[in-house]
């Protein structure tokens, strides 16, 4: 099945549990610095935003990699790193438009989201579904229906107001 990590930023309360469980699973240590997912937090505004790898179809990291270490895993449609080939040149970090390729200075490796073999731990622990792992085909269905409903509501209201006038 073709699934994608969906972010609902309005549900994020910046508890940063996702970062902690991500590093715990991948690096056997709890260290947000080594997490593949990043919560961008603006402490003074009371806002948080989960930043995840978009697993791009035409991934700049993959295109730029000089040793073809970045490949697409067909089963998960995820962009993966072959550590046998990776030379750690950090070109991928330079070109990723989202800043979601990381250099882990602890292990001295390039790290990125690998979707945890299809069971993302961040999704499991997220308390409020700010993160979901959903079928690509269903990705926009919910939003489309919600958007249409809002529009319908608005139109009905306008029409009835006009009629009253």
């Amino acid at each position: 099945m073709d699934k994608v990590l969906l972010v609902n930023p309005e549900n994020c309360h910046a508890c940063r549990t996702c970062e902690m469980v991500c590093s715990a699973t991948h690096e056997n240590t709890i260290n947000p610095f080594q997490s593949r997912i990043k919560i961008i937090q603006w402490e003074n505004e009371g806002e948080g935003f989960p930043a995840v790898c978009a697993q791009c179809e035409d991934a700049p990291c993959r295109a730029i990699c000089p040793v073809k270490a970045i490949y697409v895993d067909e089963s998960l449609s995820s962009v993966m790193i072959d550590y046998n080939l990776c030379i750690g040149c950090r070109m991928c970090i330079a070109v990723c438009p989202f800043g979601m390729m990381h250099f882990d200075s602890v292990t001295r490796k390039i790290i990125k989201c690998d979707l945890c073999e299809g069971e993302p731990i961040c999704v499991k622990f997220c308390p409020y579904e700010a993160l979901e792992y959903v079928d690509t085909a269903e990705l926009e269905t919910g939003k489309r229906r919600e958007g249409a409903k809002q529009l319908l509501k608005f139109l009905r209201k306008t029409v009835s107001t006009q009629n009253n006038i």
Binding site: H13, A14, C15, R16, T17, G48, P127, Y128
Partner: peptide, 10 residues
Amino acid sequence: VSSIGCAGCP
């Protein structure tokens, strides 16, 4: 506007 949690708190 929003609500924010301490680290690790649901």
